[in-house]
């Protein structure tokens, strides 16, 4: 897979500099592909990394996934939430880990969008809302990678947001030549994330263009819109996101459905407000 070269300054987001994911993740991914491997075996591998296990348990017990305080072991988490969700949690905590101080606002924004996506998915009547939650958790990961790999250009993006009063997404395009939607698609492919999560990551700004897994792109799109209304955390700018009417239509949502989701989100935000890494 190729590196991403910015059109403006020619700098590169390169694969070899990508954050290293915990070693257990590789091992676990192999086990998952093996039809003979048991959940118990997978759980055992994850549990070897105690710090990581503690983080995973903290996240799965947060109100985001809807089982607050009830999951005591990695194995139980795997059974209840499935491997995709656990993998998403491992990736997001590992990537944000490197940046936690500087990107606390984006972490909060991501937690908010995870929560909102769970709420929207449930209200739309979709099964497995935690899959949507983890897609929300990962939706802005490309912003973290820019900050880590191209810190100077990242500063320029933030400056452009302030000076030209643009959204972060537009400023990225002005400075890099592409947005975090493309970085997300690139990351998702590199990390072999499942199609639904990849599509949500790369299409949350343009869910109407999603070819596959349109519903999950629409859910995260609406989740992002909701969290920006509350300005919970920081997404990189202080604007609302364009709410695509197509996304509402895809979920069969009326404004009253959106408002019911906002009600639920405002109740839950307080419980996720200090969920640190």
């Amino acid at each position: 897979m190729e590196d991403l070269r910015t059109t403006v300054k020619g700098e590169i987001l390169s694969i070899q500099d990508l954050p290293t994911l915990p070693g257990v993740l590789d091992e676990v991914s192999k086990l998952v592909e093996d039809p003979d491997a048991s959940t118990e075996a997978i759980a055992k591998v994850i549990s070897r990394d105690q710090v990581l296990s503690a983080k995973v348990l903290k996240m799965v017990n947060s109100p985001i996934y809807g089982f607050p305080g009830r999951i005591g072991t990695i194995q139980h988490a795997l059974v209840l939430l499935g491997f995709n969700v656990i993998r998403g949690i491992i990736i997001s905590t590992s990537v944000f880990d490197m940046m936690v101080a500087a990107m606390k606002g984006l972490w909060e924004h991501s937690l908010g969008v995870a929560t909102a996506s769970n709420i929207v998915a449930r209200n739309a009547g979709f099964d497995d809302p935690e899959e949507y939650a983890v897609a929300g958790l990962l939706h802005d990961l490309g912003k973290v990678v820019t900050a880590v790999q191209l810190p100077e250009l990242h500063d320029t993006i933030l400056e452009t947001v302030r000076e030209r009063d643009l959204t972060y997404f537009r400023a990225e395009k002005a400075v890099l030549g592409f947005g975090h939607d493309r970085i997300n698609a690139w990351l998702a492919r590199h990390w072999h994330l499942p199609g639904n999560i990849r599509e949500a990551m790369s299409r949350h700004h343009s869910p109407h263009l999603a070819e596959f897994y349109k519903p999950v792109a629409c859910v995260v799109h609406i989740g992002d819109f909701m969290v920006r209304l509350f300005e919970f955390g920081t997404s990189g700018d202080d604007q609302t996101a364009y709410l695509r009417p197509e996304a509402m239509k895809e979920l069969g949502f009326k404004m009253s459905d959106l408002e019911r989701c906002l009600d639920e989100l405002s109740e839950q935000m307080i419980d996720i407000a200090d969920l640190s890494l």
């Binding site: 009063d165 920006r228 209304l229 509350f230 300005e231 919970f232 955390g233 920081t234 202080d238 604007q239 609302t240 364009y242 405002s266 935000m269 307080i270």
Partner: peptide, 21 residues
């Protein structure tokens, strides 16, 4: 501390958030 559920504060922020639309 920004953000939160003081709804009157949210109301006051709406014009700003939607300023480009």
């Amino acid at each position: 501390s920004g953000g939160g559920t003081a709804f009157d504060e949210r109301l006051a922020r709406m014009d700003h958030l939607f300023r480009h639309y």
